[in-house]
């Protein structure tokens, strides 16, 4: 029986890109669950498929990429009058990318913000125009109301003088302000899930902290869930409750934030944690990088995808058997033959 609080379940998602040179299995088995109002961090090296996975949720993967298997179950709360709340479970993976049903979810229920606030906003439309557009698209309101809501939203994300900035063009704002405007646009319809794809990578460090704080604050106020995609483990530790680690398109470990940092199970997670600097670590000398490089996407290793780089590789086993994601009793999951009972 599903928990009342479940918002989104991704089950065995596979998204492949069909190129002339071969098929790239960008996502090859992603499983995760997001609670209503919860915060999930998705971490992994660049190229591990975390972005493609998040794009798949909104069916934004462009040709030649395609979801080939799996389910994306979205538990939609039908906003009925009164207290009676109805749940409607929709499989987003089964919807056509440009269908009416999919478009109703985008922006309205699930919104997304991206890495580059400059290029993610249209340079020739005002901020206000771009925010109002999403409001008038999903709400039956007139232009003036939409504009008022846009100004409110800009104020809420901490943009000074929102009545003036609403008519500004993106190139007239600083990087941090642009990302705030981007957030205002994403949250204009009060979605129940915000997917943030590396939202602070392009910003400088002080602005990064401000934007993270803003996301947390808005999450509290609006009660939405956040899925944070990043390669920054520190950031995940700071704001996430649950973490999913991805490697070569597969979810290799899932745990709550405390357990993961205290007792990482998968060799990859351990290697990942060893590779980040920590205060008080100076005595140990050099950081410990993960040996080897991410394999060529056209030739995935047979067996466990991590075995060529794994320090605890078991010859004859790891290079032959592809491990399953095993659910543990402590509500964690891991995909490793070492951890199989």
């Amino acid at each position: 029986m599903k928990d009342e609080s479940t918002l989104l379940e991704v089950k065995n998602l596979k998204t492949h890109f069909f190129l002339d040179e071969g098929t790239v299995k960008a996502v090859e088995g992603a499983d995760l669950t997001i609670r209503r109002g919860g915060t999930l961090g998705v971490v992994g090296e660049s190229g591990c498929g975390k972005s493609v996975m998040s794009y798949s949720i909104l069916q934004l993967v462009e040709s030649p990429g395609r979801i080939v298997a799996g389910q994306i179950l979205f538990h939609r709360q039908l906003k009925c009058n009164g207290q009676s709340q109805m749940m409607d479970v929709i499989d987003l993976a089964a919807l056509a990318p440009n269908s009416r049903a999919m478009r109703d979810i985008r922006g309205e229920e699930i919104a997304m913000i991206f890495q580059e606030p400059m290029t993610s906003l249209s340079p020739v439309h005002t901020i206000g125009n771009q925010i109002e557009e999403v409001i008038t698209l999903h709400r039956r309101v007139d232009h003036a109301t939409a504009r008022r809501q846009a100004v409110d939203m800009l104020r809420r994300v901490g943009i000074p003088k929102p009545e003036e900035r609403v008519d500004a063009y993106p190139f007239q704002l600083s990087g941090g302000m642009r990302q705030r405007a981007m957030i205002a646009m994403a949250l204009a319809c009060h979605p129940s899930l915000l997917i943030a794809d590396e939202p602070t990578t392009a910003l400088d460090v002080t602005t990064q902290a401000q934007i993270l704080e803003l996301i947390q604050e808005l999450q509290r106020d609006l009660g939405m869930a956040v899925m944070l995609i990043t390669h920054n483990l520190g950031m995940v530790a700071e704001i996430c409750e649950e973490i999913v680690v991805m490697y070569l398109g597969e979810v290799v470990e899932r745990a709550d934030v405390f357990s993961l940092f205290r007792e990482p199970l998968h060799p990859y997670t351990r290697a990942l944690l060893r590779s980040i600097p920590r205060l008080g670590q100076i005595k140990q000398g050099r950081l410990d990088p993960i040996q080897g490089a991410v394999p060529d996407p056209y030739n995935r290793p047979v067996g466990c995808p991590f075995h060529p780089r794994c320090a605890q590789m078991m010859p004859g086993t790891c290079d032959r058997i592809h491990p399953e994601l095993i659910e543990r009793r402590d509500n964690r999951a891991v995909r490793c033959l070492l951890c199989e009972p």
């Binding site: 934004l60 985008r106 997304m112 290029t119 993610s120 249209s122 557009e133 646009m185 994403a186």
Partner: peptide, 26 residues
């Protein structure tokens, strides 16, 4: 190929409106 096209799609705009309002306009 610019990211703002994806932003526009993520808003829930129909494809033809995405095309005409953003990339075609630019």
């Amino acid at each position: 190929r610019k990211p703002y096209v994806i932003t526009a799609r993520a808003k829930g705009l129909p494809e033809w409106r995405v095309l005409l309002k953003y990339p075609v306009r630019l």
